[in-house]
Structures are given as structure tokens and as C-alpha cells.
Design a protein around this nucleic acid. Sequence first.
DNA 1: TGTTCAATTGAACAGTTATTCATATGAAAA
DNA 2: TTTTCATATGAATAACTGTTCAATTGAACA
Lengths: 117, 117
Amino acid sequence: MKNDDICEVHCIHKESINEVKSKMLEEETFQKISEDFKILADPTRVKILYALSQRELCVCDIACIVKMTDSAVSHQLRLLRGRNMVKFRKVGKMAYYSLADEHVIQLIKMETEHAEE
Amino acid sequence: MKNDDICEVHCIHKESINEVKSKMLEEETFQKISEDFKILADPTRVKILYALSQRELCVCDIACIVKMTDSAVSHQLRLLRGRNMVKFRKVGKMAYYSLADEHVIQLIKMETEHAEE
DNA sequence: TGTTCAATTGAACAGTTATTCATATGAAAA
DNA sequence: TTTTCATATGAATAACTGTTCAATTGAACA
């Protein structure tokens, strides 16, 4: 196996490595976690989510609030929809979006407080 | 100003917009928040931080644990150092890294629990 | 002094991503 | 039906990012 080879030769602290290795999470879990954070790694998306945490809004309103084109906002909403982070209802031509997952807002609020130091 | 123009013509819910707009954070704050999350938007960095939350480790050990080359790990550590998320002490040729900010681990743990549903 | 080795660094490459622009959809109003 | 308008979408572009590779640094030891 290649995994071990990387170390076997040069690594120094075998005990530390084994101890920490045994506590590591699944590869898949780390992947999932970073993918979730990736959603919040863009200011436009954070703004959209923050705005939606205040109240339900249509695409046009969001675009106005976050100062982006309708198209750009729509693309981001599509992404957020795919992640089940927002939901929407159609009324005529318009689409009203709202938060589907309050969890993200907790993360954002937590980070806001930490940033304000 | 261009900011208003985007809306003025077509936007529908002026009250909603004004209400939400007044509650929005500073542009700079959103920028800062998303930059912080960007750090956690990569599985290798999450693994490194998680490993360091278990104990102090040298570059070589980390490389072994996260299954990456020393070089790749060193590049990421440089980035994390720049953000004051890790600190290190030199002992001879080796560099022992540890967490400088417990806050990130809280975020990761929070996201882990949420991911395990 | 010269060699070895952990760590660092810069340049290059490949892969990803956010925005723009043009176009399409589909519902309401004319 | 035809036009209008909110939203959605695909393709293209530009900017960014993570890893690799080659080379360097600097400490320990022969």
C-alpha cells in the first residue's frame, strides 16, 4: 500500500501518528465537511443567506439587496437549492425564496461574532 | 449611483428591501466571514486542523496522517500560519505545529455533528 | 567541511468557480 | 395571440486555488 510508504521510511513520531490516526474521522466525512463550508466561502452566498434569514424574498429583491444581477443571484440560488439550504414557492412569474436550514445561519452568526474582535 | 439603479426600475417589494437592507452587515464583514470559511473549504486543511486539535505534530507527522506530501502540507501550513490559525516552535530541523485558535475546531465539530444525520 | 535531512519556497499546471452575456421559459397582462 | 416581465439556464471567460516538482535553506552530525 502506498499510504504507509509515505511515512514508514522517514517519519519520526510513530506513537503520535498512531494515536492521532486512530482519532481521525472518515475520509468521506472530511470531504463532506469541507464541501459544506465551501458554500459559505463566497461573500455573495453569505449575503443571500443572511438576507433570507431576515425574511422571505423574491429573486429580484435579493439581487437588489446584495447588489448583483438577477442572473448571478439565480445561479447562486440554484446552487443553494441543490444543497437544500433554501426553498422557494412560485407565485405567478415570481419565486419567493426562504431558508430551508437554520443551521447555516448559526454558523454565520458564530463567525460574525468571532470576526468582530 | 449604480447601486440603486439596479433596483429602482423593476424591484417589487420596496418595504421588504428597505427592511432587510437596514439589517445587512457591512460589506467588509461579509467579505471577512467568507474568507474565514474559505479556510475550511478544503478537506486537506480540515484534516490538518483536526489532527492538530488532538496534539502537537511535526510537518512530517501531519503529512503522514493526512496522506499528502511534506510539500503540500507545508504550503497549507503556511496559509494557516498567515491566518494565525496555527502556531509552531522549531526544534533543530523540525517544526512542531499546534492550534492557535480553538474557535475553528468548534466550527468543525459543529459541522461534523450536523453532517452525521 | 561536507553530507544528510526536515522544512520551506517559487513556478507551473490542472481543475474549479463566480460572473457575464445571450437566450429560453412560462405566467400575466394587453 | 402577442407582448412583457421575472426567473432560469448554458456557454464562455477570467480569476483563483491546490498540488507537484525542482530547488533552497539551515540545523545536526559524521
